[in-house]
Design a protein around this nucleic acid. Structure first.
Lengths: 203, 203
DNA sequence: CCTTCCCTAACAAGTGTTTGGTAGGTTAGC
DNA sequence: GCTAACCTACCAAACACTTGTTAGGGAAGG
């Protein structure tokens, strides 16, 4: 008789998502490699081996966390991009959407930020590299449209600008805590104000 | 007879710095926890155990890398701060100095960025937390002076601005490669232009 | 002969993972 | 309505392997 099939994906997704949530928080706080399966189990109130009833490896937990996050992220991004707004409005919408995602998936974003660089080379995490390319394309084309339409400055290196905007947004995940004094929309507003108009007084 | 004293700090610092350099690069690329002592030894062309002739633990390598970096960083920062420039000039000098440090210690900066958060709680790495406090104080007071002198906008949350400026600068270490097409000074110039004046066309 | 620098070989602790078992609830048979 | 079979979700204990680290030795040069 072959081994009994484990639930893995088919079972009630409820407990699964719960466990992925605690795993994501531990990963985000301690780093993926520094996080042992036993620590995750501790936080979940169970023993290490029991996790393997729900998932078939530590790595697959990481993959599912990142996949879920990126899927939802691109749902939001594609909605914005398909709306075909002006360049400035697109940038504003993308930034705002990003902060909403940070609000919803702060742990996943933190993990993504810390680990994506050395994960992306692995075949299993190729979707990270692909996402990064889509990301770059979306932002760069928006910036280029803006320069062409003369709403963004043309005296800046556009790739430097891209990295600047991209980083300013996502690094926020490292200090942002949901339920703080600023809502995601408020943070987005202030960030956009700084990125677009600068912090210097206009003379 | 007690164990023979190992060189550790007293020996010729030449080979030591060489090894710390390669260790830093591996740490930066793979992450500290994901980096095994054997990998470092590989990159250095020796065996794992041999590293312990020069250092007494993997952690002490990390500590020395970060300490060396922060010491040099604060050398530069203190020079700037002691010059008692105006707020805008101070900010410009600090940013420029930061990019020079990224140029010189890119690996250490990358490590610092990834690991400092969960390292700082350890007693051994208390100097990280202390440095972060000094850091915050220096930047915040500069920004406050600027607001008071009406060279920086007063309609922004100053702590948000602080994190914004701080992050945009240091994240650059994750993509910066020395010997690229932009010098540290040129990158600093463009970053400052964006941070101070924004990327939108002035109307 | 001593020092410097590295190698060989091993150690103990911790790692992700597997296997077999089991308490407790749900369903099916009569 | 009772019992037997079953499923879900976990535990207990172990596995093979990797980890950081140590002890002893040896080659090369002064």
């Amino acid at each position: 008789m072959p081994t009994k099939k484990k639930p893995q994906v088919t079972a009630t997704p409820e407990r699964r998502r719960e466990l992925l949530g605690t795993a994501a928080e531990v990963f985000a706080e301690q780093g993926y490699n520094a996080t042992t399966v036993r620590k995750i189990a501790d936080h979940a109130g169970m023993l290490a081996g029991s996790l393997y009833y729900h998932f078939d490896s530590k790595e697959s937990m990481l993959e599912e966390i990142l996949r879920t996050f990126l899927d939802e992220l691109w749902d939001g991004y594609d909605t914005v991009l398909d709306a075909e707004l002006g360049p400035r409005e697109t940038l504003e919408a993308l930034v705002t959407e990003s902060f909403r995602e940070i609000d919803r998936h702060r742990a996943a974003v933190a993990i993504y930020q810390k680990e994506s660089r050395h994960l992306a080379v692995q075949e299993r995490f190729a979707f990270l590299a692909e996402s990064q390319r889509k990301f770059e394309k979306a932002w760069l084309s928006t910036l280029e449209r803006g320069v062409a339409a003369e709403v963004f400055r043309d005296d800046l290196d556009i790739r430097l600008t891209y990295r600047f905007v991209r980083d300013t947004v996502w690094v926020a995940a490292s200090w942002y805590r949901p339920g703080g004094q600023h809502s995601p929309e408020e943070i987005a507003r202030q960030y956009l104000s700084m990125v677009l108009d600068g912090i210097a007084v206009r003379t």
